[in-house]
Amino acid sequence: MSKEKYWEGKQYAFFSHKDCEYFPCHKTNDTENFNCLFCYCPLYALGDQCGGNFHYTKEGIKDCSKCGLPHKRDNFGYITGKYNEIMEIAKKNRRNPDKE
């Protein structure tokens, strides 16, 4: 018996912007479950630890054009579960005005 996740069925966990001129921004066979909530993926900053389908270009830029991870209805929990890792990166990158 599967336990319902805290976010399942909640309006804040899913948004589909079908009127967007870019919808869908990634190839999909399931536009009814295409989540636009994370239009710009918050996991990008995690580099190769994001868990998505990406590759690095020869210029060293992360290319996520074939990744649908943030756009799947069921991945809200996965993405928000990575926020602690994102906060750690932000802490490392935070400027310390006292040391400048």
Rank of each mutant, 00 (worst) to 15 (best):
K66C: 10
T28L: 07
K58M: 08
G60T: 10
C39V: 02
T80W: 00
Y56V: 02
K72L: 11
G81L: 11
Y6N: 07
K18G: 09
K58A: 15
D98F: 15
H71F: 14
C64G: 04
E100Y: 14
P42C: 08
H55R: 15
A90G: 08
Q49C: 09
F15I: 05
K72M: 13
R73I: 11
L69Q: 05
T31M: 08
I79C: 11
P24N: 08
N96I: 14
P24H: 07
K27A: 12
D74T: 09
G60V: 04
K72D: 05
P97T: 12
F23D: 00
R94I: 09
I79D: 00
Y78K: 05
C39K: 06
Q49R: 14
K5G: 09
M1P: 11
E32F: 01
K91R: 14
S65V: 07
D48T: 11
A45M: 09
R95E: 11
N93C: 13
E88R: 12
H55Y: 15
C36G: 03
E88H: 06
W7C: 11
E8H: 09
R94K: 15
D74M: 06
G47I: 04
K92L: 11
E32Y: 03
F38K: 10
Y78W: 07
F23P: 00
C50M: 02
D30T: 09
H55C: 08
K27P: 09
C64W: 01
C39Q: 09
K5R: 15
L37H: 01
R95P: 05
F15D: 02
N33Y: 05
E32N: 13
F54A: 06
L37A: 03
E8G: 10
K72R: 15
R95L: 15
K91E: 11
G77A: 14
S65N: 07
N84A: 10
N96M: 12
G60Q: 04
H71G: 06
F34A: 08
I89Y: 04
F15K: 13
L43K: 10
T28S: 07
N53A: 01
K10V: 00
C64S: 02
R73T: 05
C64P: 05
K91D: 04
F34L: 00
C50D: 08
I89D: 01
N96P: 06
N29P: 00
C64K: 06
K3V: 12
I79A: 06
A13I: 01
N75R: 09
E88Y: 04
C39T: 03
P70R: 07
S65K: 15
Y12C: 02
T57H: 06
